[in-house]
Amino acid sequence: MSSERLVPDRPDDEWRPVLGTVAPAPPQLPGEVFEHPPSYRNPHPMGGVPRGLPRSDEAVPDTVLDGADFERLVVRAASLRGDEHRYYGEPRQDSVALWPVTLAGGDALVACVADGVGSQPNSHRGSALACAYLREEVEKLPKDWTWDHVDGFAATARWIAMAMENWAHRHDLPPASLSTTLVAAVVEVAPADGRHRFEVLRVGDSPAYLLRNGELTEFAPPRSSEGGILDTATDALPSHPSAVRTVKGDLGKGEVLMLCSDGLSNPMRSDEVRAQLQEWWTRSDEPPGILEFGWQLGFRAKSFGDDRSAVCVWAR
């Protein structure tokens, strides 16, 4: 094979071999003109290769991207299969979902991220179900609903858990096989006073952040474990609806509400990763496009091979 065909985009004098080198440089394939997302600490080159398609009853695509540009709110969602699931041809277990709903006579956005528990065989179904049932429950909220509902989310989590258990029984599956975390937000789309009220509901270790003044700050971060051994245990639906935690707040112009799975929050413990995301997402006058947002989440970091999902909501 001539090296000319391998490097079609380069002028002659750049690719011509230099006499005296021992090992030839690796061939530059045409696909490499694509600019890859950042890579941290030299992850194994085979790590991100999807070596197969998952054998599951329904299609679970490798990547889901979504988004909308409302007049004063921009939302982006992405869920990317992790390097480990790609390498083993297994389905992505995370889910993301965005829905418009009418709440208290106004338009609202429902955004959720769910992280199916690693070892459970149906957790990819569980994470999708948790998102879908959350939307059903939000739509059932009464007409006199106010943006002061956080206490009521305890009941919402219970209903979601019950609906998931019923689904499991109908499909003759153990409810725990659906185990998933859930972090969801209801956000006001067009507030009269310019501040978008929001409420967040969480079960498990999928966090929510506020990006304000260039800093991502986690709502109610967990206490770091003493002695420093990483605690991987998490609360999950449908088993632990009582572990629900809630927070309410409002988003001013230029601020971002971010929900994600621990496939993002774990590598975000590194300053480099966090700083890069903050830099990209702080430009509220120009949030990333839908494809660009997916690209940004596609960074590779050594040893972080989990599914990675996030929803960002920019107020503008």
Partner: peptide, 11 residues
Amino acid sequence: GTSGGADGGMT
């Protein structure tokens, strides 16, 4: 290194 534990993390 590859399979999630019963609690969802690496074990």
